[in-house]
Every structure is written in C-alpha cells, then in structure tokens.
Amino acid sequence: MIRTEGLTKTFAVDKRIGKITAVDRLDLDVKAGEVFGFLGPNGAGKTTTVRLLSALIGATSGRAWVNGFEIGKRDQEVRASIGILTEQPGMYDRLSAQKNLMIYARLYGVPNPAGQVEKYLRMLGLWDRRRDPAGSFSKGMKQKLAIARAILHEPKTIFLDEPTAGLDPEAAKLVRDFIEELKTEGRTIFLCTHNLDEADRLCDRIAVFKHRVIKLDTPSRMRTSMFGRTVEIQVRHADEPMLALLKHFDFVKSAEWVDGKIVAQVDDPESGNPALVKALVEAGAEVQFVSELKHSLEDVYLSLINNR
C-alpha cells in the first residue's frame, strides 16, 4: 500500500546554512491493513515524509507508490485515495461542523455527501453539535471533526500526524479507539506520533526515524533485539552462590541482584524458566514470583535516538 525506494527530500534553506536533507533515502514497505508507526523527535522529517507520501510536495530523488499510484506521476489519484489528518485540525472556524464536512465530501466527490457526513458525525458523537461553528468546538472535538474529514471518502490509506497531541486523556482514548476501529476495517494507517505508549498499543510495526530509518520492526521484536528478554525472580533466603548457579546455564546471558530480586537476561524464557526455578529450589531458595520484565518502547526509542 505504501512503498518507497530511496525517497529523499532536500530543502535549500539559505546561503549560510545551504541545503538540509529532511528525508534521506527512505525505503519502506507498508502492507495493506497494517498500522505503521513512524516515530522520531521533532524536526526528524516525519511531517515532510507524510507530505511526500500525500503528494503535497515533490521528492528530490527516489520513488514512492501509495495505493498503487506513483507519487509525482499520478498525484491526483494518490490524493483521492488517501485521507490525511494534519498536525493542526485546520477547520473553517466560522462554518458549522456539518458544512465543513460537506465541503470536503464534495471536493472528494463522495457519492452521497449528506449521508456520509451524517454517518461520521454520528460515529464520532458530533451529530448533536453539527450546526455549531467549528470554532466553538473544544480541541478534542475539532480533532474528531478533522478525523471525520480525513475518512469521509473512505480512503484505503490514512495518514495520521500526531492524532492525540494535546488532547485530554478521555479524548485521546476516544481517538485511539477510533483508530483501532479503522484498523479492523482493513485500512492502512500511517501513524506519526510522539506518544510511544500509543504506538506500542496500536502499531503492527514501527520505524524509529531521524531523517532516515534507524530501526524498523514490530514493537516486541524491537525490544527483544535490543534488550533481550529479562526474567525477574523473587526468592526468599537467596544467597550469592545462587547467582553463580544460574550463570552456568547456556541460555542465561547475565544475572544480577537488583532490589533483592534476581534479574536474569535469558534467551528463551518459555523453555528455560522451569530449569532455572528447579535449580534455585534445589539450591534451597524459596521462589515467590517469576515474571518477565518488559522494557518499554520508550527505552527502545531513547536508546536508538541517543545512541545514533
């Protein structure tokens, strides 16, 4: 659904600074129905990437296809087949919510504009406020309206740029739930976000990006590949020789005492844990809890960005 080959975008800033490369040889292959997270710090080139893939700006080099249409050659078809939620909702504040959506329904050539507008206003809980000017809406309501605008024409691929930024927890949850719903409908979602917890929950795969892709994988594989899998064992009456005992196992990469617990990095906990527990018990330890210590996506992200 989204494919790029060496996609590059360079901007000429001024004579002193010269050129800056916002997107550098980006290679992506986002599958149909996938929720793809695009994570990166401010100024990493995420919005530029979304603009390139939405056929809003042209690439300096490289090629890209969205929904089968090549960017730069079939831009109008690209734009007709995608929905985009920009960083700012950008509604027409003096016009009613309904009028705002009607304009876009007509611009996208939606067959039954009034019906489609009603469907999404109801779905997002805005129907009762349809006649109110968009300018009178709260930030969360405006964001919901902007989401409705992005999907009015039932696009196959949706670009969401910081969809929950600045929203209160309730509104953010509503937006996240709605993204989950879009996912179940089989749409491809390209999600730019700073909210790592959100990316962890929603995305099938994520790319950590700073002008170029630093790492691309599923959130869980990214954790494993970077930090391995860590098991936390809480024992009563443990002593130092027990740590040495654990380190004899081939699948144990490291073991240490942390806050009165044994924290061991292991290759395959599902297979190895029973042997570990048995060895500890035989050595006289009273095992109270065994759990997997999960690294957050934030750990992964910060490690990738800071080590670059």
Binding site: L56, A80, I82, T86, G90, Y92, Y104, L107, G109
Partner: peptide, 14 residues
C-alpha cells in the same frame, strides 16, 4: 492562520 490550507491542498482538487 487557521492552517486550513494543508487539508484543502491534500484533496484531489488541482
């Protein structure tokens, strides 16, 4: 100022 140009430019409108 209302940043409504970008969504408009993202439509198939030429």
């Amino acid at each position: 100022t209302t940043r409504s140009l970008e969504p408009l430019l993202a439509t198939p409108t030429t």
